[in-house]
Simulated scan of single mutants.
Amino acid sequence: MRLVITLRYLATGESQQSLGICYKCSASVVHNILFETTEVITRAFWKKVFPSLENTTFLRVAKGFEDKWNFPNCIGALDGKHIMIQSPQHSGSEFFNYKKHYSIVLMALCDADYAFLMCDVGAAGRQSDGGIFKNSEFGKKFYSNSIQIPPPRDVTDNFQCVPYVIVADDAFTLTENMLKPYSKRNLTVEERIFNYRLSRARRVIENSFGILVAKWRIFRTSINAGLSLIEQIVQCCVCLHNWLRHHKGNQYIEPGLIDLDIEGRETRGSWRLEPTNMERLRPLTGNSATAAKLLRNRFAKYFAGEGAVSWQCERI
């Protein structure tokens, strides 16, 4: 019964008071059940559904992105979302974000099949968006080069010694292991092609968040709970998402739910039409290292040349 109450709460977003009435117990009992059960689910599933981030894992992920999304040497798509919450007690403006509501941030990296490789939850919404990733556990390891990213490889005879990269949007910093789109005006054809190809690969993380919201409707409400419970709720939902993705496959994703871009034929997923309490991070401004810009230019040249796909010019 504790599991039934917890899954119903996560899947419907029903209030704790309403659940208490349905199951003939007080809201405080429901709260305790949610706190304990989400913790147990997370502890039981975490190591089973999140792979260790090592060389072999990244090589598998890179093959998936190259085969399915025509993006070589990609070891994941990264994004973060503000999750709306009720104002925490005695928190002042710490969780009040630029969208003028209270939130915590879910930072996640996913593979080519909409499964999360990493998630970090709990950063206060008021924090600068560029600093949220840097201050996360994964971000600290990423910037200190303590993650087992595979060494550069030759993609083709003309595109050699290419580093493995994460694809992200404008909220993140361009580095030699993280690519984001060109944001200047009056882009060249080569740069617009790169932006399209990057967007096509990066859309995987947007779809992953879309699936999460569609299946776990607690993310369609402004979550009213203590911060520790909210963090456990998010972690629990991500664990359940990965478990269902691995064990149910496409049965977990009904037709029409996610965005599709098959050889340039793009369809928008139904998740985009549903209400959600998730907001995207604010774009980051600032200069990036010269080496990172040169790497992005190399990818742009490759996508416009021997790495081109037949439909890309129509899509830009």
Rank of each mutant, 00 (worst) to 15 (best):
L179M: 15
K180R: 15
K180Y: 09
K180E: 12
P181W: 01
P181N: 09
Y182V: 12
Y182M: 03
Y182E: 10
Y182F: 15
Y182W: 03
Y182A: 12
S183F: 00
S183I: 14
S183W: 01
S183A: 15
K184R: 15
K184Y: 04
K184L: 05
K184C: 13
R185I: 12
R185Q: 14
R185T: 15
R185E: 14
N186Y: 14
N186W: 02
N186S: 15
N186E: 12
N186A: 14
L187C: 03
L187K: 00
L187Q: 05
L187F: 02
T188D: 07
T188Q: 14
T188A: 13
T188H: 10
V189H: 10
V189N: 09
V189A: 15
E190N: 10
E190I: 14
E191I: 01
E191F: 05
E191P: 10
R192W: 00
R192F: 01
I193L: 00
F194N: 05
N195H: 07
N195L: 05
N195V: 04
Y196F: 11
R197K: 12
R197N: 08
R197G: 10
L198A: 05
L198N: 03
S199L: 13
S199K: 09
S199Y: 12
S199Q: 12
S199A: 13
S199W: 10
S199G: 10
A201F: 13
A201N: 08
A201S: 12
R202F: 06
R202Y: 11
R202M: 07
R202V: 05
R202H: 14
R203A: 09
R203I: 09
R203H: 14
R203M: 12
V204T: 15
I205M: 05
I205L: 04
I205H: 00
N207S: 09
N207K: 07
N207L: 06
N207I: 04
N207P: 02
N207A: 07
N207M: 01
N207Y: 04
N207V: 01
S208W: 00
S208R: 04
S208N: 08
S208E: 09
S208L: 03
S208Y: 04
S208I: 04
F209W: 11
F209S: 11
F209G: 08
F209D: 13
G210C: 08
G210P: 10
G210L: 08
G210S: 15
G210Q: 08
I211F: 06
I211E: 01
I211Y: 07
I211L: 10
I211R: 01
L212I: 02
L212T: 07
L212C: 08
L212N: 03
L212D: 04
V213M: 09
V213T: 14
A214V: 05
A214M: 00
A214P: 06
A214E: 03
K215Q: 12
W216D: 00
W216R: 00
W216Y: 13
W216L: 00
